[in-house]
Amino acid sequence: METVRLTDVRDEALSLDEVFDAVRDDGAGAVVLFTGVVRDHDGGRDVQALAYSGHPTAAAQLRRVAERIAEQEEVTALAAVHRVGDLAIGDLAVVVAASAAHRDAAFTAGRRLIDELKSEVPIWKHQAFASGEPEWVHPGP
């Protein structure tokens, strides 16, 4: 069975169950699940609205990141889904999961997947603050 089982960039609500189910495996004793949730503040400022935009290559780049990690880490399965479009406070923005025989490997792969997704995949966050000022954020290069 393929190690990278689910990657996507989509403009619809994300499902924890979908991502968790994608990495479940009888050989995996550990599953690490990370969720990024839209919060109501950033840098001491109140967030009023938030939207994510993705480059047309974002989904393919996400897949490449996951495949690279799958080759380099001892994981059973990986999955990652990122949302684009307008999101509300409390919405899931990203869900990442890694499964492995043991927890250390699952934690390492899951951490790498979210960190490298955020630094390499061309997805930008547009925040509107209560003060009226906007901000574009992309933590990558």
Rank of each mutant, 00 (worst) to 15 (best):
M1Q: 11
T3I: 14
V4E: 09
L6E: 06
D11N: 13
D11H: 05
A13V: 11
L14D: 00
S15I: 02
L16M: 12
E18K: 09
E18I: 03
D21I: 00
D21Q: 12
A22K: 02
V23K: 02
R24Q: 06
R24A: 01
D25R: 02
G27A: 11
G29N: 07
G29D: 08
G29W: 01
A30G: 06
V31N: 07
V32L: 06
V32Y: 00
F34T: 15
F34Q: 15
F34K: 13
T35Q: 12
T35A: 14
V37K: 07
V37H: 06
V37P: 05
V37N: 08
V38A: 13
V38N: 10
R39I: 10
R39Q: 13
R39L: 09
D40W: 08
D40H: 13
H41M: 07
D46V: 13
D46G: 01
V47D: 07
Q48M: 04
A49F: 04
A49P: 02
L50R: 05
A51T: 10
Y52S: 05
Y52C: 02
G54S: 13
G54N: 08
P56E: 14
P56W: 10
P56R: 13
T57G: 00
A58R: 01
A58Y: 00
A59R: 15
A60H: 12
A60V: 13
Q61G: 03
L62Q: 06
R63H: 12
R63G: 09
R63Q: 14
R64E: 15
R64Q: 15
V65G: 04
V65H: 05
A66R: 09
E67L: 08
E67V: 08
R68G: 06
I69T: 11
I69W: 10
A70T: 09
E71L: 11
Q72R: 15
Q72H: 10
E73A: 07
E73Y: 04
E74H: 12
V75M: 08
L78C: 09
V81D: 04
H82Q: 14
V84F: 00
V84M: 03
D86A: 08
D86H: 09
D86G: 00
L87V: 04
G90Q: 13
G90R: 14
L92F: 06
A93Q: 13
V94F: 05
V95K: 11
V95S: 09
V96T: 15
A97M: 11
A97D: 09
A98I: 01
A98Y: 00
A98P: 00
A101Y: 03
A101N: 05
H102S: 11
R103H: 05
D104T: 05
A105Q: 14
F107L: 15
T108D: 13
A109N: 11
A109R: 12
R111M: 03
R111T: 08
R112P: 00
R112G: 02
I114F: 01
D115S: 11
E116A: 03
L117A: 01
K118D: 02
E120N: 12
I123C: 03
Q127D: 14
Q127I: 03
A130V: 14
A130D: 15
S131A: 14
S131H: 10
S131D: 15
E133N: 08
P134C: 10
E135F: 00
E135W: 02
E135T: 06
P139A: 11
P141W: 09
